[in-house]
């Protein structure tokens, strides 16, 4: 890990990962969308609206995955004063916020025909909404200081504090009686979902993860380049 605290070395790693992430994202998203929109059966209860699920569920997973990565990278920032970990956390925040918004928006679109309402205040929906606010708070405090290093550290502490919400989201459907259905893929007794629906779901999940890595690579490189530009401008001035 400390080997990659050097931005140049880290950028070399990111450059190596980026084309792979881009390729995997494009292939799996194309295949996943084909399977989920065309080549999978409609649900016997939900009809065609079940196809929203293939966009919604992986987005919700990514929302939590991005937050966990952000909190993990923030912990590395604070503990080891790692120079690049915070760049990763900072670059992750808007991506995670977008996935969270996507999960909320698609869930709402699915909820209208299925539950008869755009929104209910059950534990799962509320905790995911709070996750969105945590992302927004992170981005706000990141930019609230004239000294960028201070913003980084304050945001890192906030990200770690907000991590308490992640297990609450995961277990909200078990702890409370929610309208949102409980877990049906990641379960101790194996997935309770038919393979014809699991295939597109897994493809989409892999595609989203690769997409995240791709955008992350772009954002990290842009962020490091911006720091270089800023340093050069300061030296020139």
């Amino acid at each position: 890990m400390h080997r990659f605290a050097n931005p140049t070395r880290f950028v070399a790693l990111v450059r190596a990962v980026q084309p792979w992430a881009a390729g995997i994202a494009l292939v799996t998203l194309a295949a996943g969308l084909w399977f989920s929109l065309i080549a999978s059966p409609a649900d016997y209860q939900q009809g065609e609206t079940v196809r929203i699920m293939y966009v919604h569920v992986p987005a919700a997973w990514m929302a939590m995955f991005c937050y966990s990565s952000m909190a993990g990278a923030s912990a590395v920032t604070l503990v080891w004063r790692h120079a690049v970990a915070h760049v990763v956390a900072r670059a992750t925040a808007p991506i995670g916020a977008s996935f969270t918004f996507l999960a909320l928006a698609t869930g709402s679109l699915w909820g209208k025909p299925m539950w008869g309402t755009w929104w209910v205040w059950d534990a799962r929906l509320t905790s995911v909404l709070i996750l969105l606010f945590l992302y927004l708070g992170y981005m706000a405090i990141e930019n609230a200081f004239d000294d960028r290093a201070r913003g980084s550290r304050a945001a890192a502490i906030l990200a770690i504090v907000g991590a308490v919400n992640v297990p609450i989201i995961k277990f909200s459907v078990d702890w409370w009686n929610t309208l949102h259905q409980p877990a049906s893929v990641v379960r101790l007794d194996g997935p309770a979902i038919h393979p014809s629906m699991l295939t597109p779901l897994v493809l989409m999940a892999v595609g989203y993860t690769a997409l995240y890595l791709w955008i992350l690579a772009l954002r990290v490189r842009a962020d490091i380049n911006m720091s270089k530009v800023r340093a050069l401008t300061l030296r020139g001035a």
């Binding site: 606010f133 927004l136 706000a140 405090i141 609230a144 304050a154 502490i157 919400n165």
Partner: peptide, 21 residues
């Protein structure tokens, strides 16, 4: 967290109110 930041009060509500829920 907000000590020394540019917009204290409004920022504080964004950070803290979700955790009060």
């Amino acid at each position: 967290l907000i000590l020394g930041s540019r917009r204290g009060g409004a920022l504080l509500s964004l950070l803290i109110l979700p955790l009060f829920v």
